[in-house]
Design a protein around this nucleic acid. Structure first.
Lengths: 332, 332
DNA sequence: AAAAGTTCATGAAACGTATCATGAATTAAC
DNA sequence: GTTAATTCATGATACGTTTCATGAACTTTT
């Protein structure tokens, strides 16, 4: 006698099938159950239209199969890509994602960690902007691009190698004087190694170079000032530009064109990230491509590995160079 | 005597504070409690480092403050924007989002609805691609851009008005022969009204026009065939193009330029959606901008309104025209 | 000053599941 | 053919919270 008022529970199924509650539980969880019992239970489930209720299990076991992903937003295409691939990796393991947008607000980072704990998540993957963030010790925690300590695994691209590659590519293209531009940051984070790799390669190849970092709070116009101060007689002092982020590269290219310079004829530009315009189309600008699917896989497999003993504290994944649509387009 | 082995619970707090369990609950939930009791409880919470555990509440009340958002992905910038603003709207109401990516897979749409129910979500917002999707009746359900029935609220842009506006804008720009291109779909969904509005305006203004829809399974090259078949003596038969999606518009513009045509000098192009390249920068192409923040607000407030009695079954929000960077850029 | 009303803490009872100890029934071992 | 070992269903319990009925301690009304 199925009751309509409330959703049927395992107890209802057990009564309907004439078996014990625990038997139903084991059928639902795919554990070993005698064949006759199994079919009796399955029939009862079908008859009653029973649907599993995870809140009971969460209460009992403390586990949810949910991983919190803390990230600034999803509007930046790099973050969107990350979210996308992390979800694929989670889905593969039958996990769900609790998505937490911080909008670069460090208070919200802390709030979301607390909220995630309250929701009994099985782990946290975070791309944060507070270098002093307190990392919970009682819950698996993995960071992207931010190294906190050896006990908190960090997944990142080979940022140093990427900077190094960019410098070499610019040289290959025939550039003889390079420059690096980026948004600065108080963080001693992994992406800052892009500059180190770039500088290292320039020194090694004996190529002159400039560095321009925009500190927090400084206006974007400082970038323009920098470019104009190196602009004489219709050309720039340098002919190859490596920029810390595709996002910024895109903006800089517009500034350059506004100054009457042609990209890439007058100045070559390489960004970093590997952003495509509409997700699956050409790259927005020439760029060092981050291996986002691999980063996502590493994040998920690390955060889900209960035995955090033999997990490396820094996983560094290889990047590659790709030619960008905007850059090419203008070439024709 | 705080125990280290397990996280303290409300019962522990009650014992520590020397009050009843229910009192702790009411303090935590901000309900009316005598001042002396409240401070005793708050002290005990601080002493024990108690943290709220939502799984208990979920089990007891059946509510989670979580809304499922079912959407193809977050790589398409329009979807990313939607996710972003829906999250803002949810956060404003102290709700979390369970994000479900379908990748246009109709089976996954069904699976995620089931999963959402199992997780006791308080409601579902869905942008689906299965016209025969079975909408659960026992859980608040809101769709974006898809009308199923009067009992399932649908939030959409004014697609008809957008098509109408596009035609008028093209006329204003001096176009005398228009065309409409889009990915077709077996859905009788709201976005298909973009064509209706466009056609209606053309007829009204007495302007000749072409229609080209790419059916499911047909190759993209059919678009190119269409364009070439209207291409004679270095110019197109039409001089104004309205395209169902910015995504497609972007591709079409590349095809046009590949044919040696200049956009917008030789042919004006208007897309639909209002996609910006890097989230907060200029529009990718000239476009009819969807009011995404307002759509998100409407979705959330509708799905959270328990009294579904006086909720309209179709909410239609105004669009506007915006000039695109790519288009403008070429104008100089 | 007594009755009626109000406020608010208490203790107990769910909510739906997983799991543990128990014991019955079956199979394997000698 | 008896004992030991194995399999597997049973029944009970616990997980952390909310909420309900109860009643004690006040406050207001007449």
């Amino acid at each position: 006698m199925p009751k309509d008022s409330k959703a049927p529970t395992m107890a209802d199924v057990a009564r309907e099938a004439g078996v014990a509650l625990g038997t139903v539980s084991r059928v639902v969880n795919g554990q070993a159950v005698g064949e006759e019992y199994r079919s009796k239970v399955e029939d009862a489930i079908r008859r009653l239209g029973y649907e599993y209720n995870s809140s009971g299990r969460t209460l009992r076991t403390g586990s949810t199969n949910i991983i919190a992903l803390i990230i600034p937003n999803t509007v930046n295409p790099y973050f969107a890509l990350l979210v996308h691939h992390i979800n694929i990796a989670l889905e593969k393991r039958d996990c769900r994602m609790m998505l937490c947008f911080t909008e670069y607000d460090t208070d919200r980072e802390t709030e979301y960690i607390q909220l995630a704990r309250q929701n009994q998540v099985d782990g946290i993957i975070a791309l944060t902007y507070n270098p002093n963030l307190i990392i919970p010790a009682d819950i698996p925690f993995v960071t992207i691009d931010r190294f906190f300590s050896a006990s908190v695994p960090c997944i990142a691209s080979d940022n140093f190698g990427g900077g190094w590659l960019a410098a070499h590519k610019l040289k290959e293209m025939g550039c003889t004087h390079l420059a690096f531009m980026r948004f600065s940051s108080t963080l001693t984070n992994e992406p800052s190694k892009r500059r180190d790799g770039f500088v290292s390669a320039c020194v090694e190849m004996n190529i002159p170079f400039e560095i321009m970092a925009l500190d927090d709070g400084q206006p974007f116009s400082r970038f323009e000032d920098f470019l104009r101060s190196h602009y004489k007689k219709g050309s720039l002092a340098f002919d190859g530009l490596f920029i810390g982020t595709d996002y910024l590269a895109w903006q800089i290219i517009h500034v350059l064109r506004g100054m009457g310079l042609r990209v890439p004829e007058d100045v070559q530009v390489i960004g970093f990230d590997g952003i495509r315009i509409f997700g699956d189309q050409e790259y927005a600008v020439s760029t060092i491509v981050q291996p986002v699917p691999e980063i996502a896989e590493a994040c998920v497999s690390t955060v889900l590995s209960r035995h955090m003993s033999n997990v490396p504290s820094l996983i560094c994944l290889p990047v590659k160079y790709a030619c960008g649509g905007t850059t090419i387009e203008k070439k024709e």
